[in-house]
Design a protein around this nucleic acid. Sequence first.
DNA 1: CCGCTTTGTCACGCAGATGTCACAATAACT
DNA 2: AGTTATTGTGACATCTGCGTGACAAAGCGG
Lengths: 229, 229
Amino acid sequence: MPATIMVVEDEPAIQELIAFNLKQAGHFVLEAPSAEQANRMIKETLPDLILLDWMLPGMSGIEFARKIKGDSYTKAIPVIMLTARGEEQDKVKGLETGADDYVTKPFSPRELNARIKAVLRRRAPQMTGELVEVAGLALDPLTHRVTGHSAPVNLGPTEFRLLHFFMTHPERVHSRSQLLDSVWGNQAYIEERTVDVHIRRLRRALEPTRHDALVQTIRGAGYRLSQRV
Amino acid sequence: MPATIMVVEDEPAIQELIAFNLKQAGHFVLEAPSAEQANRMIKETLPDLILLDWMLPGMSGIEFARKIKGDSYTKAIPVIMLTARGEEQDKVKGLETGADDYVTKPFSPRELNARIKAVLRRRAPQMTGELVEVAGLALDPLTHRVTGHSAPVNLGPTEFRLLHFFMTHPERVHSRSQLLDSVWGNQAYIEERTVDVHIRRLRRALEPTRHDALVQTIRGAGYRLSQRV
DNA sequence: CCGCTTTGTCACGCAGATGTCACAATAACT
DNA sequence: AGTTATTGTGACATCTGCGTGACAAAGCGG
């Protein structure tokens, strides 16, 4: 089963080695040399798994893991820590932080692949980067593409994440607070009314294929994606 | 959502600034200049949230947080730490201690309010998403939908809450003041006769499916939802 | 460096929701 | 029947929540 895997590692040699092995195993690989850069990429690409080096320039690996696991939008992504020999006592701390597994350098490709497979097997079903479809509206997390009745739909990053969340949680009403948590992440300090504006933008983008009617307003409660009228 | 918030801060200037902002946002504010004093007040007032300065005279903030989280009576109270810039590496330690979030000084009122809102939201009891059904009348809190014999019923926000309360407390007679407490929230000063009007509106909305007969008037006592005629 | 896109916020306006009243209708009791 | 207490109901003046366009700041790619 191919998956999208993000590798956060500052040493180019190791980075390259890992990437090569993962691609060999049929995975898509996203490469980030620092936590800061990884952070920017995560929300757009929503990888299925994150390989995280323990030692990083700037924000440390453990800190970054905590951040990922603290954000409700990303906390379902499994994290595998890469630790060097001698940092073994830190493993415990790493697991406490929320890492799902760890691998001690140096490691064999076979070992890494096994760990990845194991972690992916127990990943949250809803975070699988699978294609979602509701009422002729299709969203593909892998290619980052949206089509309404096979016609391409152009969305900004936030609109994409918003629609993705709606489509993976259809029919249910989501309050503005919940949407801010789930789509923006709880580290954002954003006015609730901002959600309205993005709803508007999403609707406008969906207008050409009449799919804007799926996005419904529940007065005093929030928004909902539903095919029923 | 007004809440009771305790601010533990020794610098009067910052203390005052924070208190002003919180009051502006509609909260009740308890002010304590030291951990010792805060400790005495906590058990009496049981605040909904504690804003805790990292640096305090006497018992330090981190020590105090540990104490709060160690006491079974107070450990449910969320704590937000106030740290100065440069103490960033202590954040991890702070979170490990049990703080629910941290804010780095200097901070904007908006950021503080957002953090407070987020933390309070996290603690708020989730709305029970159980689907309720009485005599062919179904109400789903999750999707915010009401159907009478599978036919959609259109309700305003207040009517929805009113019906929800009735359906989760059927067969029992509710006085007007009880309904005001449970449906409107005891914060508002509202004429009791207003309940009558909303009962009327609820009945009118339920007429198409004859479910209006379920809403019964108990003269001199209040209203009741009952399937028995 | 510049232009383009994205993003968060705001102000304005409107449709719908809300609270209150006045009066009609009904029930309870004499 | 008459009287009084209680509830039903329509009307109405707000009030609120939401849609929408505009805009400035930030991000981004060339």
